[in-house]
Structure formats: C-alpha cells, structure tokens
Simulated scan of single mutants.
Amino acid sequence: MNYTLHQLQVFLKITQTKSITKAAEELHLTQPAVSIQLKNLQDQFEIPLTEVLGRQLYITDFGKEIALAAQNIIDEVYNINYKTLSFKGILSGKLKICVVSTGKYVMPYFLSNFINKNRGVELEMDVTNKLKVIKSLKNNEVDFALVSTLPSGIDVYSEELLPNKLFLVGTSFDDDLDVLKADGFIGESPMIYREEGSATRIAMENYIKLRGIDVKMKLQLTSNEAVKQAVIAGLGLSIMPLIGLKNELENRSIKIIPAKNLPISTNWTLIWLKGKKLSPAANAYLDFIRSEKSTICETHFSWINQY
C-alpha cells in the first residue's frame, strides 16, 4: 500500500458529496485532478471503492469502510498539528458549528474576532436547514448549533445571542394601511413560504392559523434569500426574519406591513448537548461569547432596535 494523505482527503470528500464535480469544487481542484487521485487510490485495492450506475456515483460498502479509516487517519494528523501548537502555548483544534440557513446573517459576526485572535483554531461551519442542524447536534457531529427556536426532545444547554424578530413584508402597499385590515390584505395576496421544517415556516403557519386567515395562494421556496428575492420581485408577501432584511429595508425594496400580533419574537441561540465534553477550543469560544456578545450586538446589530 502506498496511498497518500492527499488521496485519502480527496476520497473522503467524494464520499461526502457523492460527486466528483462537487468534490472538486469544495477542494478547489479541477475535476480531472480529483478523478486521477481517486484512480490512484483505487489502483491499490482489488475491491471497488465506488461504482457508477447511470450517471450517479455510489460508494460501495468497502468504500465506506475505507472512508471511515481515512477520516480517522486525517483526524490523527490534525491532532498532531494541534498538539504541536498547544506545546507552543497556542490555542488550537477544530471548532465545529452548524447554523440554520438564516443564521448566516448572524453567526459570522460572533466568530470573526475569536478566529482572528486564535489562528490555531480551525473553523468548520455548516449552513443548512433546521432538520439537518438538529440531526448533526443529536449525532454529536458538532460542538455548537445556532437556532432561532430551541428544539424539543433533546437536552441542550443554551446561550442567547441576539433577538430574532419576524415581520410581514412586501413591496407594494399603502404605507398607511390600517392594522385591522392586514388580515384581509394577507388573505388576498399570494404568500411565500419556506420549506417544510424551517423554523420560519413553522412560525408563519402558526401565525396564519392563530389569526384564522384563509390564504388563497401559496408559493414554497427553499432558502431565505430565494424568498426575499421573490418578495422583491412582487410575487407575494412573506413573514421573514428581520436580520436578513437590513439593506432591503434601507433602500425600500422591501417594506414592513403592519399586522396585529407581529412581530413574532424569538432569540438567536447557541446550543450544545448536555453532557458533551467540550474541547479546549470550544470552551474558549464559549467564554468568548459570554464576555463579548453584548459588544458584538451593539457594534453590528443595534439597527434592529428601530423596528
């Protein structure tokens, strides 16, 4: 056997993405370069690592076993690097965070100073939907998760970071629209929803149900950005988190529509599993958040107080 660490890293990325093209994109390599590394690794085994059916790449059972071994090898290499840095008195290690999609407007501001001051810490941040965030947390695949509503059926510790407000928004309406008329206004307009399982979708559905509003037309999109662009284009109204609307509210491409019992208020909250033994990097980050979150909120998010 004469496989290299680079070959293992490339193969591991292929198993994660189930695609040579996507693996190449994430590794910032060309597609032929990834294919060559996969072939060179495969040539050292008599049993196939992958197979192609139709146009879809599949990882064989043997390939999955090799991927697990590759992950362990790569983790040990990282540990050697981290231990070297630790002996130099430098905080090191991986910090793994999973963030619900709208949280991409929040989390970077609560990370930048910490990462810039601790160059030995390697950040892995996955931005995805709520269901995958909770799954990653339950499977102990991450140190922390950022959510806007606390999950049920899982014991977690939590640290509130920032208020989260959801407003009814649109592009063209009477600025003096009476709040009492808003329910009818909602019912007459197409409503743009996030995908099933989204915390924003759940909050929106609960609000409409509570108000007894009959929504005549629905559109469903799979990201906050897609919903925002649809609202700007005039496809309908939506109930959206304020945090992602700063520029659009300032340039008036989106407007807040007055409506009874809005905004819906929750909190952007960092959570982690009870009983989890946090790494030195994760513990240091938690200390950083507790000491710096007020300053971060004042510096970057004071604008939300005007709404």
Results as ranks from 00 to 15, higher is better:
241 P>D: 08
280 P>T: 11
19 S>D: 03
69 A>W: 10
48 P>I: 10
25 E>I: 08
78 Y>H: 12
136 S>D: 15
95 L>M: 04
37 Q>M: 13
126 D>I: 12
185 F>P: 00
123 L>A: 02
96 K>Q: 13
251 N>S: 01
151 P>T: 06
71 Q>F: 08
104 K>N: 15
48 P>R: 06
21 T>E: 14
57 L>V: 13
239 I>A: 04
108 P>S: 02
250 E>Y: 07
120 G>R: 02
144 F>D: 05
118 N>H: 14
172 S>F: 06
175 D>Y: 03
232 I>P: 01
31 Q>P: 05
229 Q>W: 06
81 N>P: 05
126 D>C: 04
96 K>Y: 12
140 N>G: 13
32 P>D: 02
305 N>G: 13
92 S>T: 10
167 F>Y: 15
195 E>L: 03
41 L>A: 02
121 V>I: 12
282 A>Y: 09
174 D>G: 00
265 S>L: 09
82 Y>S: 11
203 A>Y: 05
155 D>F: 08
9 Q>A: 12
195 E>W: 02
278 L>A: 06
230 A>M: 08
207 Y>E: 01
107 M>F: 11
182 A>G: 04
68 L>A: 14
303 W>Q: 11
263 P>V: 06
268 W>R: 03
51 E>C: 04
300 H>I: 05
220 Q>G: 04
252 R>P: 05
260 K>Q: 11
294 S>M: 14
307 Y>M: 03
273 L>Y: 09
127 V>L: 03
136 S>L: 13
92 S>R: 07
74 I>W: 14
250 E>T: 08
102 T>C: 15
243 I>R: 06
91 L>T: 10
173 F>D: 00
192 I>P: 04
58 Y>T: 13
27 L>F: 04
168 L>F: 00
254 I>C: 00
45 F>C: 03
81 N>F: 13
37 Q>T: 10
22 K>S: 12
91 L>S: 09
88 K>T: 11
84 T>E: 15
7 Q>L: 04
210 L>C: 09
94 K>R: 15
257 I>A: 07
82 Y>T: 12
52 V>Q: 11
25 E>N: 09
205 E>M: 00
173 F>M: 00
38 L>M: 11
241 P>Y: 06
281 A>Q: 06
160 E>P: 10
270 L>D: 12
23 A>Q: 01
10 V>E: 02
245 L>H: 07
144 F>I: 07
212 G>D: 08
165 K>C: 07
109 Y>H: 12
267 N>K: 15
56 Q>S: 14
217 M>K: 15
